[in-house]
Simulated assay, not measured.
Amino acid sequence: MSKTALNLSGVTKTYNAGTPAEIRVLRGLNLNVAAGEVVAMVAPSGSGKSTLLHIAGLLDTLDEGKVEIAGTDATGMKDKARTLLRRSTVGFVYQFHHLLPEFSASENIELPQRAAGVSASAARARAEELLATVGLSSRADHRPGELSGGEQQRVAFCRALANGPALLLADEPTGNLDPTTSDQVFEALMTLVRKTGMSALIATHNLELAARMDRMVRLEDGVIVEL
């Protein structure tokens, strides 16, 4: 296994290039996340953190630079290859859970596994294991609408980790929660990450939570600054 979960080197991204409305979001950005490391990224709104996360997760392309995930150079990959690499190595968590309302908590976690070819029984067992880790075993058969905001987000974490990705990317995962729930949900996320040994890059405005991760960086003027 690669000792580096994510390597961004010289990443540049510009929107509306060559027009009066040109916006250069990332300016030769460099960032390395080691295997098993949890990195907090703090950044003001509009700084380009979502763009960075989308490039890191192969949801967006860069203009210049290099993206390497778990030892695989994804720069210049065709769409199909990018999709396959993303599906097998990257998990995403957003500020809003985006759970499918017509499915139970367990089913939401089983679905990405089934799409990856996992059997129904194995997918259910994996979902039960993850839900137990975040204290939601009794809520496995409840639909999202029957869960609290904190419970919904914990299910979303489980779904993101269902296929055992090497890298978790999270964009303000507790930003929609009150302080007490935010703390509980963050602890659940860290429990999942530590138990699996995966790496994570977590964007957050919460400096208290950021300080509890392995390392903190700041996205400022299109580059990463170590804190």
Rank of each mutant, 00 (worst) to 15 (best):
E68Q: 12
E68P: 09
E68G: 06
E68D: 09
I69M: 12
I69W: 14
A70H: 01
A70W: 00
G71E: 09
T72A: 12
T72K: 09
D73H: 06
D73W: 06
A74C: 15
A74W: 14
A74K: 13
T75H: 09
T75C: 10
G76N: 11
K78I: 11
D79Q: 15
D79N: 13
K80V: 09
K80H: 02
A81R: 14
A81Q: 15
R82H: 05
T83F: 00
L84D: 01
L85T: 02
R86Q: 05
T89N: 08
T89S: 10
G91N: 05
G91L: 08
F92N: 13
F92C: 14
F92Y: 01
V93R: 00
Y94A: 13
Q95K: 13
Q95G: 13
F96R: 15
F96T: 14
F96Q: 15
F96M: 14
F96H: 12
H98S: 03
H98Q: 08
L99T: 01
P101D: 11
S104Q: 05
A105V: 02
A105I: 02
A105H: 05
S106V: 00
S106L: 13
E107H: 06
N108E: 02
N108K: 06
N108G: 06
N108I: 01
I109D: 08
I109C: 12
L111P: 04
P112I: 12
R114L: 15
A115H: 13
A116C: 07
A116I: 06
A116Q: 10
G117S: 09
G117A: 10
V118D: 00
V118W: 01
S121Q: 11
A122C: 04
A122W: 07
A123R: 07
R124M: 12
R124P: 09
R126Y: 13
E128H: 03
E129S: 15
E129R: 15
L130Y: 15
L130H: 15
L130T: 14
L131T: 00
A132G: 02
A132C: 04
T133C: 06
T133Y: 05
T133A: 09
V134Y: 05
V134E: 03
G135I: 06
L136R: 06
S138H: 07
R139N: 03
R139G: 03
R139A: 07
A140H: 03
A140F: 01
D141L: 03
D141N: 08
D141H: 09
D141F: 08
R143N: 02
P144A: 14
G145D: 02
L147S: 06
G149L: 12
G149M: 10
G150I: 07
G150E: 08
E151W: 01
Q153F: 02
Q153P: 10
Q153C: 09
R154L: 11
V155G: 10
C158D: 03
C158I: 01
A160Q: 01
L161V: 15
N163H: 05
N163V: 03
N163Q: 01
N163W: 04
G164R: 02
P165W: 00
L167H: 06
L169S: 03
L169H: 07
L169V: 09
D171G: 01
D171I: 00
E172N: 10
E172L: 08
P173A: 10
T174W: 12
G175C: 07
N176F: 13
N176E: 15
L177A: 13
P179Q: 03
T180A: 14
T180E: 08
T180H: 11
